[in-house]
């Protein structure tokens, strides 16, 4: 464990500009068709991006495809099959897209009538452009890192834990990478890396990270 890192952790927040693609799916077959055409930015918006939205607006599941199938189409089977996909398991967005397509396609093969929206809302494809914003805050020590982390806009949690891996294609989330490499805290880094934001949201991720940091600080050694 190092008391002070040579390179500070530079916090970034982020914001997304949402672009409406004008593609509206009313049936599950159309959903697959449009899913093949849209950009990976759109796949990201409807899966990982849900973390940036309030939990009330996200709906019952943590990705938009699952929520739409379950609530708007009232196809609970497909909703559940899509809901169980964990975006964090997919290194590349293209793999995530392929998996969603294959789940819906397999489902359609198993039924005779293509489910469609009757009273609900069509699926509206959106893509987001995420703008990273340096917050002008750096941390050299774990104590400082913990203090800064507790006060930040939650878009910063998203940016470093999700955006870094998904679109910036870093191998680990930024927090884990810095804690492991710069502070030589591999145990803490592994715990942080293992946190799943899709099962509790960004605030839960923040509170778990803060608790882990507190544990290290009170013990005076790595986990």
């Amino acid at each position: 464990m190092r008391e002070r890192a040579e390179v500070p952790f530079e916090f970034y927040g982020c914001i997304e500009l949402r672009r409406l693609l004008g593609l509206r799916a009313e049936t599950e077959k159309q959903l697959v068709g449009f899913l093949k055409q849209v950009s990976l930015d759109s796949v990201c918006y409807h899966t990982h991006g849900s973390l940036l939205r309030h939990r009330y607006r996200v709906g019952v599941y943590s990705n938009d495809f699952a929520t739409w199938a379950a609530i708007q189409v009232r196809d609970r089977v497909l909703g559940e099959r899509l809901a169980v996909l964990d975006p964090i398991d997919f290194v590349a967005l293209s793999d995530l897209r392929e998996r969603i397509i294959s789940v819906v396609t397999d489902h359609l093969k198993s039924i005779t009538v293509v489910p469609r929206v009757v009273h609900g809302e069509p699926f509206e494809f959106i893509e987001s452009w995420v703008v990273g914003v340096p917050l002008g805050i750096g941390a050299y020590t774990l104590e400082d890192f913990r203090k800064r982390l507790s006060d930040l806009d939650n878009s910063a949690i998203y940016y470093h834990a999700v955006e870094a891996r998904v679109r910036l294609e870093r191998k680990r989330n930024d927090f884990a990478a810095w804690l492991g490499d710069s502070l030589d805290l591999p145990g803490l880094a592994a715990r942080v890396e293992s946190l799943d934001p899709y099962m509790g949201g960004l605030e839960r991720l923040r509170s778990r990270m803060l608790a882990y940091c507190d544990e290290v600080l009170s013990r005076g050694r790595d986990l």
Binding site: G13, I15, V133, L135, L152, D153, N154, A156
Partner: peptide
Amino acid sequence: APKGTVEFLRCLAQR
């Protein structure tokens, strides 16, 4: 506003 919003807006506005 939600936590950290004001600081975030100041940084965003720099750009």
